[in-house]
Simulated scan of single mutants.
Amino acid sequence: MPYVSSSWVRLPVMLAGAASFVLLGTGAANAHVKWFCAFDVAGQPRGLEQVLCTDFELLTGLALVCLMFGCLAEGTPLGTAILNALDRATAAVRDNSALIVRAVVGFFLVSLWNLGGIILTPELKTDIAWIPWLQLAMAAGLLWKRTLPLTAAGIVFLFGLAVWNYGAFHLADYPVFLGVAAFLALTAFDRTLFGQRPIDVVRIAAAITLMWASVEKWAYPHWTDPLIAAKPAMTMGASPELFMQAAGVIEFTLAFALIWTPLVRRASAIILTAVFVSAILEFGKVDAIGHSGIIAVLIAIAADDARVPATRRDVVLTPVYYASALMLFLGVYYFAHGVLYGSTYGIGAGMRGLPVI
């Protein structure tokens, strides 16, 4: 029988603590850590054989059960009733979702202009004097539908500039910006991208962003040590290591849910919106500016009424796709880091220890 740590006995408490940790904003997204704590992207990550421990497998197993339960409930009269209620409650938002995204992105760009010295997100600093003015011009481009592609092009340009200055691995945290750019351009032209609606494109980009960020919680749990040290009660008796594992699993599961069935993804969007809004109360203006765009996107996702009825096949396939996404993001993260920074420690041993779900 595999060893189960004594702290696992307190699983309900630990999960509640992890959820509280997320809702307080100290771990809702890795960007919080990069904005408020010291970090080193090129530093040695924790080995995969340390990440993929028994506690991690049990946590992901529990998360998977929750996903399957939500998917199974979706095909019942109760699930249909919940979706109908969501449709009625979010009708006004749904009818104005594109306008809401444009308004919030405009607020975001004007705020960057006001702060100055920032490329898209707080930790990406620049001393190029014309970038704030470009961001102000991009905000003006959001006023008219025909100029939305210019703002989208500006976002892509700034993202590329950030890649040039900070590297592709660092910017892998932020594909949601490219999703927002695609949303704006597709909305302007009333087009889809290979059959994917604008909201679908930005939803997938948001999911990728958050799944990647969750891996960094497992790879670099020590980045959050100053926050846990300042607020030790948030762990509710769990060890910081187990607490960060649980926080990462919660975030990864909610992010994966964004690309799953309609009720599951809408519920996830609502929870994540609460996560990011709660974080603003803890971290203030910088957090409000930095996460304003993704909050607007999540609100639009929560209001999206597109439905493809969930089936038993979806329930059966949930473990397959969840496990595949988990292995993909872990594998790509560690492989890319090893290639770019030469830190391959733990990859071989860790991959042999991947959980079977």
Rank of each mutant, 00 (worst) to 15 (best):
V249L: 02
L272V: 12
A255L: 01
G248P: 11
I259A: 07
F256N: 07
A255T: 01
I271H: 08
A246L: 09
R266D: 05
I250Y: 04
G248A: 12
V249G: 01
L281G: 04
S268D: 03
I270Y: 07
L263N: 11
A267T: 11
E282D: 06
V264I: 15
S268M: 03
Q245D: 04
V277R: 06
T261L: 08
V249E: 06
A255W: 09
E251S: 06
I270P: 03
F252C: 10
P262L: 08
L258G: 12
A274G: 12
A279L: 14
V277Y: 08
L272Y: 08
F252I: 11
S278I: 02
L281V: 08
S278H: 01
L254K: 00
A257C: 03
E282A: 12
S278E: 00
E251T: 02
Q245H: 10
L263T: 11
T273E: 13
L263Q: 13
A247D: 04
E251Q: 06
L258N: 07
I259R: 01
F256P: 05
A269V: 15
A255Y: 07
I259Y: 00
A246P: 06
G248E: 08
V264Q: 13
I259V: 02
L258I: 08
M244C: 12
L281W: 10
A269D: 15
F276R: 04
I259L: 00
T261C: 14
E251H: 00
A279S: 15
